[in-house]
């Protein structure tokens, strides 16, 4: 089924069709939310809630319009709600940045960044990819990575910084 067929079936109450739409759009939504939230589970929670909101609101979706932008609007609202709800529990210095994030503009093609980043990651060698995964997906502190690698924490930080710089350039190149 193409996207239009999936939408029509989902609007008629077909959960499997909606799962197909989730599959199509989840990476973009995760990329979009990750522009505002860095914690892995926070991003996943917001994306999940966004899809549930979309499912509940499907009967109000105008099928003559595009599904992606509609979904992204729901997701942006969810993200803003999450950020605002979290503000009172954040340290003041971090809350100020969160407030600025709420107001800051998004870059063009913001929601394609995750796809672009994955492509860029594939170009890295396995060792560097693994280091990034351990640090950013598994949340292993730099000090512990340094111990395991037999390097100083500064050296590991420097490697991570260079890798991130390279990825940033790669993603920016892909977006342009």
């Amino acid at each position: 089924m193409d996207e239009h067929e999936l939408i029509r079936a989902a609007v008629a109450g077909d959960e499997e069709a909606f799962a197909g739409l989730v599959r199509l759009h989840q990476a973009r939504l995760r990329g979009l939310v990750a522009l505002s939230l860095s914690e892995r589970d926070d991003v996943l929670e917001v994306v999940q809630e966004s899809f549930v909101d979309a499912w509940r609101a499907l009967d109000r979706f105008d099928e003559t319009r595009e599904f992606g932008p509609w979904l992204r609007t729901i997701c942006r609202n969810r993200t803003l709600k999450f950020l605002r709800d979290r503000l009172p529990r954040r340290r003041r210095e971090l809350a100020l940045v969160d407030e600025a994030l709420i107001a800051a503009p998004l870059s063009e093609l913001a929601d394609d960044r995750l796809v672009a980043l994955r492509r860029c990651l594939e170009r890295l060698d396995a060792e560097h990819r693994r280091l990034l995964e351990q640090r950013f997906a598994d949340g292993i502190p730099v000090q512990e990575l340094a111990l395991a690698l037999g390097k100083s924490p500064n050296a590991v930080s420097m490697i991570l910084l260079r890798l991130k710089d390279a990825l940033q350039r790669c993603v920016a190149g892909a977006a342009s």
């Binding site: 990750a34 522009l35 860095s38 892995r40 991003v43 994030l101 960044r113 640090r135 950013f136 997906a137």
Partner: peptide, 12 residues
């Protein structure tokens, strides 16, 4: 914002 988001994107 893009630079700030890279850590979160990497986790994703």
């Amino acid at each position: 914002r893009d630079r700030l988001a890279l850590d979160g994107l990497l986790a994703q």
